[in-house]
Design a protein around this nucleic acid. Structure first.
Lengths: 263, 263
DNA sequence: CGCATCGTTGATGGGGATCAATAGCTGTGG
DNA sequence: CCACAGCTATTGATCCCCATCAACGATGCG
């Protein structure tokens, strides 16, 4: 369990103010298209969204517990994660986010943050003002439904994590987490052939599944020993997808992916 | 940990088809009014919602994992809960719901259930067709925002539970759960003076916080011994609210209540 | 090349699961 | 009105999973 290190807040200067050429927002459109049919009018409304592009170093906080954000954060490159800190520095990781995600979309309707959002790796994000998003939802009910749905999938993943932490064995928890991450990456075209980046350290994994980092290390060795997976550096290779999903009791239904997962 | 007993599905006949006189929907309006300002037009649109009233016996499932619901369930009386079942009958309770809640509102945008919803006590519910709710959201953006926000608070509670299960001591988990339930009941006018109904059995509590029922029993005795609370029959009495919230590291911010909690 | 973070390993102890048995409670039916 | 059935709560005994502490490699970066 990681002790309470407070990462530096982002500083002014480490971003460029290039406002959107709709290119970056293509990622958002792609995400929405995986949920609904996007009309031309909707597409063009999205492409007209104002945004600020930013580069963030790894492990830097983006929004903090208690903040009152005025914008949402669209992930363009890199991974982010949400987490809570408790007394004595205990940390619970709540979710992991990849390009296409809007990890703080809830701030559109919940004015105060009840957790932290941080960059896991160095990453590129686009900040979109709440006001622009509110206007978009006022005028485009279809987009509203899609964004709403996106937050509902978020919640569905929370429920699964709760179950993971509360009722699965440690090896089940780890393998379940890996199955989920691989499928999410795969759905966004960021993984193929049962291999993907793994930006989480063993300490991060520990704080995501509610065990100690030492224990994560030992169980990972078991999983390697069984030939289920390899985890070296920042790369996860799944050698036995069927075995992994079985070990994890993994059923992808909770991800509510449009296309059936065929990894 | 409760073994997989499959409760009987609801039968035809145990409900009456009395369609809404807006009386029951007053509860929904009350809930929404705690979130937004409800205009006369909105109020009357809500009161015109079609609904079917039903009486359900305790422990009966309302919607099941894998179902494709065509309606949402508004709690009128009694408690409900959401849960998942794993292999070997392990159960994780995901949330607890009281009058005013719509525990399956997510089904409006996620067609397939990824968990179960069951009656905890005997209860009265109102089923509202998805189609009517969709029409309501099409025509009333304010209500859409309020309902969306409601699902976001739901998700915020999931995050807190995740943290509870993953990183708190057992006594912290139990006390945190009690603080939350008391405050939710209090906010709906269903509890006063640090006392309330407690429909959860020790086994239910165990499955909500990720420990065994035996352990819940022992920790409850400690809490009683410290004079923090009394739990007899179906009644919870909190003797030392300050002590309880401290033990729980309880910060109500995540509930996103409109009025500051003043229990 | 030196420091920091991450990964790895060993030793130790405790929190909590599990099994088993008893007691209390509630509704049901004879 | 009591007996019985079926839950729920309680208690004791045993064991082991996993947290914790500590130390040491490995790795990567400025």
């Amino acid at each position: 369990m990681r002790r309470a290190e407070v990462p530096p807040r982002r500083r002014k200067g480490d971003f460029d103010m290039s406002f959107a050429a709709g290119a970056d927002l293509g990622l958002l459109i792609r995400k929405l298209k995986s949920i609904i049919t996007v009309s031309d009018a909707e597409r063009s409304a999205i492409e007209r969204l104002p945004m600020t592009r930013r580069q963030l170093p790894a492990r830097q906080d983006i929004v903090r517990d208690g903040d009152h954000p005025t914008q949402c954060c669209l992930m363009l490159e890199g991974w982010a994660f949400r987490y809570k800190l408790l007394d004595e520095g205990k940390r619970q990781i709540l979710s992991v986010h990849i390009p296409g995600d809007i990890p703080d979309l809830q701030s559109l309707h919940l004015p105060v943050m009840d957790h932290n959002l941080g960059a896991l790796t160095a990453c590129t994000v686009a900040f979109i003002p709440h006001e622009a998003l509110r206007e978009l939802t006022r005028t485009h009910p279809g987009i509203t439904a899609a964004l709403w749905r996106d937050t509902l999938v978020d919640a569905a993943i929370f429920r699964e994590w709760m179950t993971n932490i509360g009722r699965r064995s440690t090896s089940g928890r780890i393998t379940h987490l890996f199955c989920e991450l691989y499928l999410k990456l795969h759905a966004m075209g960021l993984a193929e052939n049962h291999a993907c980046e793994m930006a989480l350290t063993q300490g991060d994994i520990a704080d995501a599944i509610g065990v100690s980092n030492v224990h994560v290390n030992r169980v990972l060795q078991e999983l390697r020993g069984e030939g289920l997976l390899t985890l070296q550096g920042q790369r996860l290779v799944i050698h036995d997808w069927a075995g992994l999903t079985k070990r994890a009791e993994f059923d992808p239904a909770y991800l509510h992916l449009k296309r059936a997962p065929a990894p």
